[in-house]
């Protein structure tokens, strides 16, 4: 079923939803961007449709809603472990098809990797419903069509924003009550992007051997990458974290155990006591991340991890292009194969 709502009516809809839901969408933080005078676009709670930044790509993904940058696991008072609490509202997220597909990768790691579920992820994730923002044209650096993540049917509502009205497709009956009396019924189906200007050739998984890990093609990244980890932070599918404890300064007998985002490009990721460490060279970190996104995750779970959102390319201060890197992997493998023949 579809509806056509003026922005004003859509805001009434949001008002109605707010009682039950925390509503998240990409929003603008003026002058907080990568370069002076640019804005930062990241996820936050919205009040009205005008808050939603839908004509640009967000710099950061919606993962922080279900996997917060910093999350308290336990509070300590002396020897007691008290679990942190979570708000009691449901969650509605406005996001594009690539990110919905990316969310499934996060689900795979947090809920299905190994026999034990991550309950801190699950307790937020099970509250979530998706509002898919139609994405017909994509943006700079996107390559979702190549990674097969331009399309999804996993949403409750799909929306097309225009300057003054919103077209909605309603799939989830439970939202019907919020729409009644608001807009005019119509037939609306979202459209999907069919071609990006950036295309990647994903390597065939069985063509990659561990010898390839030491291939010369990685060398250029040892100088170019500075190990800042911005690509990890922006990525919808990067899911690593580190647990650590803190004692409160004002009361050292109390404190908390928390987890914080971690990234495989950043120093200390593999450090062990006694000075042991792996992947000290930045090129091996680039190789490690790349292989995870387009090789080993697929070996383990049957689909590629990368969903082609291109945020890693957008954010890299050294202008390292991940799509170029993927294409280089495929090209190098082909060349090596034909040389061997």
């Amino acid at each position: 079923m579809g509806y056509r709502l003026s922005n004003e009516k859509f805001n009434k809809l949001l008002d109605g939803l707010k009682g039950e839901y925390k509503i998240y969408a990409p929003i603008r933080f003026p002058k907080r961007g990568r370069f002076s005078d640019t804005d930062l676009i990241r996820y936050g709670e919205i009040n009205k449709v005008e808050d939603v930044v839908w004509i640009e790509k967000s710099n950061y993904s919606p993962k922080e809603i279900v996997f917060p940058i910093t999350q308290t696991l336990f509070y300590f008072t002396e020897d007691e472990f008290k679990e942190s609490m979570v708000h009691n509202k449901k969650i509605l997220i406005f996001l594009r098809p690539c990110d919905i597909n990316g969310m499934r990768r996060l689900d795979t790691i947090f809920l299905n990797n190994g026999p034990i579920k991550d309950v801190y992820y699950e307790r937020l994730r099970e509250k979530v419903k998706f509002v898919m923002m139609e994405c017909k044209d994509g943006f700079e650096n996107c390559f979702c069509v190549s990674t097969n993540s331009n399309y999804t049917q996993d949403y409750s509502i799909a929306v097309r924003f225009t300057s003054n009205e919103v077209f909605c497709e309603l799939k989830d009956e439970s939202f019907q009550q919020f729409f009644s009396n608001l807009g005019t019924e119509m037939n609306f189906k979202p459209e999907y992007i069919e071609e990006n200007s950036v295309k990647v050739q994903l390597p065939e998984v069985d063509k990659i051997t561990t010898e390839f890990f030491n291939h010369d093609m990685w060398k250029e990244y040892s100088k170019r990458c500075i190990g800042c980890g911005r690509c990890n932070m922006a990525c919808i599918t990067c899911s690593c974290f580190t647990n650590s404890d803190i004692a409160y300064e004002e009361n050292p007998n109390a404190g908390e155990r928390r987890r914080v985002w971690a990234g495989c490009h950043i120093d200390k990721f593999t450090d062990m006591a006694g000075g042991h460490s792996f992947r000290q060279d930045y090129s091996s970190r680039m190789r490690f991340k790349t292989m995870h996104k387009i090789y080993d995750y697929k070996k383990r779970f049957g689909e590629h991890m990368c969903v082609g959102c291109g945020r890693c390319d957008d954010i890299c201060p050294e202008y390292i292009s991940f799509s170029n890197c993927i294409n280089k992997v495929s090209k190098t493998l082909k060349e090596d194969e034909s040389n061997a023949q």
């Binding site: 790691i109 947090f110 190994g114 647990n243 593999t270 792996f278 080993d296």
Partner: peptide
């Protein structure tokens, strides 16, 4: 032995290729 934070296949620190050392 690898750096480990979660021990249950979530934090990513111990991963080598598609293998999780903790699992």
């Amino acid at each position: 032995e690898r750096n480990m934070s979660c021990a249950i296949g979530k934090c990513g620190h111990c991963k080598i290729d598609e293998t999780y050392v903790c699992l």
